[in-house]
């Protein structure tokens, strides 16, 4: 019944996208920028089609690194955030350090990791884990802290142990925060894997990018960028789907709030 607002809300982004495409079209086809430097949308489309099998092969490697790194990132974030939540001293000790690690640019540590770990998968997975754990850890900490104190009192009055309060109240409360963090981390994971591949490797979207860049194949550069954007968007949609499955009650809360 609320169809019409959702269409009007989708209109502005569609218009903006169309405007970007129009500028691109005018710049490339109109001869404002030399063709070899800025390929037209049609050329990029053609490259995307012809290179699609190669892109898929490389994406398989990159996604594997991203998934492994993200998995480790989630695990570390869960353990660390939960421990920090439980042990106040650990929170005070680790939180500033956690923030500092995030100010180190990814491109700066990636070469170091390659030097330490070689050209295999290890440095890539490590980099992804490093970049993804932070948003999840911070979200979880925020989520744990947002627990309703009165609800915790209620559980304590029932004789609940700390673990039971965590399991029945704190963790479910933090779940929505976890998924918000995961949504950010998923796109970090793909970008992190690609960046670490620039610095060395045998396969992957980052390796492919370096190769076509060296060949000045601008159409294929654009194609791989679009491809990475699409993959990231798809993964973010997957997180939203997971969230809906894991937290079915959220749908009703939103209805209540809107009314």
């Amino acid at each position: 019944m609320k169809r019409s607002p959702s269409i009007t809300s989708k209109l502005p982004p569609l218009l903006a996208l169309a405007a970007v495409l129009a500028v691109w079209l005018i710049a490339s086809e109109g001869g404002l920028v030399p063709e070899f430097m800025l390929p037209s949308p049609a050329q990029v489309g053609a490259a995307l089609v012809s290179e699609f099998p190669t892109l898929l092969d490389n994406a398989a490697v990159t996604l594997q690194e991203a998934a492994l790194g993200l998995g480790i990132g989630i695990a570390v974030a869960l353990v660390l955030a939960t421990l920090m939540h439980r042990v106040r001293a650990l929170y005070r000790a680790c939180y500033p350090l956690l923030v500092v690690t995030q100010t180190i640019p990814t491109v700066a540590i990636a070469p170091l990791l390659v030097l330490w770990m070689g050209f295999g998968m290890a440095p890539k997975v490590t980099l992804v884990a490093l970049t993804t754990f932070f948003p999840i850890a911070v979200s979880l900490l925020e989520g744990y802290a947002s627990t309703d104190k009165a609800a915790a009192d209620l559980l304590r009055s029932m004789g609940a142990s700390r673990w039971q309060i965590f399991r029945h109240l704190e963790f479910p409360t933090a779940l929505s925060y976890f998924f918000s963090g995961l949504r950010v981390s998923v796109s970090y994971a793909v970008v992190g894997a690609v960046i670490s591949e620039w610095l060395g490797g045998f396969e992957g979207l980052g390796v492919y990018m370096t190769r076509v860049r060296k060949a000045y194949a601008f159409d294929r550069m654009f194609a791989v960028i679009l491809f990475i954007v699409a993959v990231s968007l798809l993964l973010m949609a997957l997180v939203t789907l997971l969230r809906r499955l894991a937290m079915p009650w959220e749908a009703y809360e939103k209805i209540e709030r809107n009314d």
């Binding site: 009165a150 029945h168 479910p172 937290m247 809360e253």
Partner: peptide, 18 residues
């Protein structure tokens, strides 16, 4: 020693996820 007397606090405090 909590857990012996049943206590209903001011708000209903039903857990939204259950």
């Amino acid at each position: 020693r909590p857990g012996k007397i049943s206590y209903m606090l001011q708000r209903d405090l039903l857990l939204p996820h259950k």
